[in-house]
Design a protein around this nucleic acid. Structure first.
Lengths: 208, 208
DNA sequence: ACACGAACTTGAACGCCGTTCAAGACATAT
DNA sequence: ATATGTCTTGAACGGCGTTCAAGTTCGTGT
C-alpha cells in the first residue's frame, strides 16, 4: 500500500518535531520514548518503525538544528563584501557573533549537537559528519582574504582552529555551571578573540 | 565507635578510586553503581553511606582530575621567567600545550569535567566551582606581562577567553566523532592560536 | 462475499539503571 | 542476658530504551 509509507513519513516528521520540542524544552536528558509516543499518538513500539533507535532521532533533530544554524550564518554574511582585509575581519566577527547568538537562542538544541554520543559501538553516519563540516564554510572565504598567500590545506586547518576557539568561548560562556556570563560580555569576548586573531594574522602575514 | 568513621573514610577513598578507574576506562557512561559496589566490596546500598549520590562521586573524581591537571600546568610553568614579552608568549604556549597533552593523556577523565551535569534541580557545590577557577591562574600572570596597562578585571576576562579558546580547539580536536586529528597537528593548532592571540595583543597594545 | 496470508501495530515484558528502606546484624550499656 | 541504638544489607521500586509474541488490518485470489 502506497499510503503506508506516506503516513509513516508524516509520522516520522511529527516524531522528530516532538523530539525537537522535548530537547529544546528540557534538554537531551528530557527526551523520553514514552512521552514522544503519547505526544505523536502512536504506540511505544511504533517509534522503532519510524527510526532505528533514539540515536537516529537525536541525529535527525541535530540535522534540523544545523540547517537553521547554517541559515543564521548565511544571513550574517549576506550582502557583505570582502574587498579589504578590514571587511574580511568584520565578517569573521559577524559570523562569530551570529554563532554566539544562535547558541544563546537555541541553547539546548545547540548543546545537543556536541553533548550527544552514540550508543556503545554505534558509528556516526556519514551524512551527519558531512553536515558538521558545513559550519567551517562561512569562515573559509574571509580567512582566504586575510591570508591570500596561504595554501588551501593551511586555510582549512586555520578555519577549523578559529571555529573551535570561538566555539570554546561560547560553550564555556553559556555554561550555567560557572555563573552566567552576561550577553554583552560574551559578545565582547567573542569579538575580541576574533579581532585579536585577525590582527595577529595581519601582523604575521606582513612581518613573518 | 571511632573505627566506623575511619573505615568509612577508607571505603570512600576506595570508592572514588574505583569510580576513577571506571570513568578512565569506559567513560562517564561506564560508571555503574552495582559494579562499584562489587569492586569495593560493599553492598549496593552502602555506597549511599559513603556519598550522597552518583553526582557527588563524579565531582570527587573531578576534583582529583583537576588536582592532577593543576600539577601538570604548574610543571609547565616551573622555572620559567617572565622578563620579556617573548617569554610571556612562550609560557602561554607552554601552558596551552600542557593542557592539550593532559587532555590527550587523560581523555575520559578530562571529558568528564565538562560532560557531567548534575541531576535535575541539584546545584553544583561551591568548592567544585572554586576548583574550576584554578585553571585560569596559570595564564593570568603571563597575560599581565603582555598587557601591563590593562586593568585586573580586563585581564581576568581575557584569561578566561584565552582559556576557553584553547579548550575549544582541544575539545573539538580530540572528538573522535570527526576523524581524529593527529597529535602533532593539534599541538600546532594550539600553538598557532595562542601565538596569534599574543601577536594580536602586542600589535593592539602598541597601535591601539 | 468470503477466506486467506502477509504486513503492520501494539503494549506488556525484558534487562538495566540509580536510589530507597524494611529488616536483619551487630556493638555497647545496663 | 537483655535492651537499645546504630550500621549494613540486598530485594524492591520506579523509570529508562528496546524487543517481540500476539492481535489487528488490509489487499488479493477465488
Amino acid at each position: 500500500m502506497v499510503k503506508t509509507t506516506e503516513r509513516r513519513e508524516r509520522q516520522r516528521e511529527a516524531l522528530v518535531l516532538a523530539a525537537e520540542r522535548a530537547i529544546a524544552g528540557r534538554g537531551l536528558a528530557g527526551l523520553k520514548a514514552r512521552e514522544l509516543a503519547s505526544e505523536v499518538g502512536c504506540a511505544l513500539g511504533a517509534i522503532y518503525n519510524l527510526v532505528q533507535d533514539m540515536d537516529e532521532l537525536v541525529l535527525r533533530v541535530g540535522s534540523r538544528t544545523l540547517a537553521r544554524l547554517d541559515a543564521a550564518l548565511a544571513q550574517a554574511t549576506q550582502g557583505r563584501r570582502l574587498d579589504s582585509k578590514e571587511e574580511a575581519s568584520a565578517q569573521l566577527v559577524a559570523v562569530a557573533q551570529a554563532y554566539c547568538a544562535f547558541a544563546r537562542g537555541n541553547l539546548q538544541l545547540w548543546r545537543t549537537l556536541f553533548e550527544h554520543r552514540m550508543a556503545e559501538g554505534a558509528i556516526v553516519p556519514e551524512w551527519a559528519i558531512d553536515e558538521q563540516m558545513t559550519m567551517f564554510r562561512y569562515i573559509l572565504a574571509p580567512l582566504q582574504r586575510l591570508q591570500p598567500q596561504a595554501g588551501e590545506a593551511d586555510l582549512v586547518l586555520l578555519s577549523r582552529t578559529l571555529f573551535s576557539a570561538v566555539h570554546g568561548v561560547v560553550m564555556l560562556g553559556l555554561e550555567e555551571k560557572l555563573v552566567a556570563v552576561p550577553q554583552r560580555e560574551l559578545d565582547r569576548q567573542v569579538e575580541r578573540l576574533v579581532e585579536l586573531v585577525c590582527v595577529g594574522l595581519a601582523s604575521q602575514g606582513q612581518g613573518g
